[in-house]
């Protein structure tokens, strides 16, 4: 997996099996969501991939601005026939994902590799 360090301390982005993996870090609120959106969209365009995994393992906080970032990427990729999968969520993040309805349109997986495999159509 090739790791590209973007915005140190905020996110780590890499491509694995044709899927863009975004390891989010820290507190995802209005202060960081716009900068993250620009970086993730730039990377999606550059890598020409329509599948994305968000890893929440190092996320300490998320509110509706952070969720808006996730939903926005889902809408963009779903329109291209791609998808978004989630992993690394803790109980606090699960609760907010549940309440927002995001879990109705995106699934959570035990790890990055499971999420990547699911986006690539199961198998292998």
């Amino acid at each position: 997996m090739r790791i590209m360090y973007c915005n140190p301390g905020i996110v780590e982005i890499g491509v694995f099996d044709g899927v863009l993996v975004v390891r989010l870090q820290g507190e995802l609120d209005l202060g960081v969501s716009e900068g993250l959106r620009v970086r993730i969209d730039k990377e999606l365009d550059r890598q020409r991939t329509k599948n994305l995994v968000f890893n929440f393992r190092d996320v300490k906080f998320i509110d509706s601005s952070g969720l808006g970032l996730v939903l926005g990427r889902y809408k963009k990729l779903a329109a291209q026939g791609g998808g978004v999968a989630l992993t690394g969520t803790n109980s606090t993040i699960d609760r907010i994902l549940e309440l927002s309805g995001l879990f109705k349109i995106m699934r959570g997986y035990a790890g990055e590799s499971e999420a990547i495999r699911a986006l690539n159509g199961g198998g292998r």
Binding site: D63, S64, S65, L67, G68, G72, I96, L99
Partner: peptide, 12 residues
Amino acid sequence: DRMGLGFVFMKS
């Protein structure tokens, strides 16, 4: 591009 969840979260 906003979710409209601000007050929903506050109330919840």
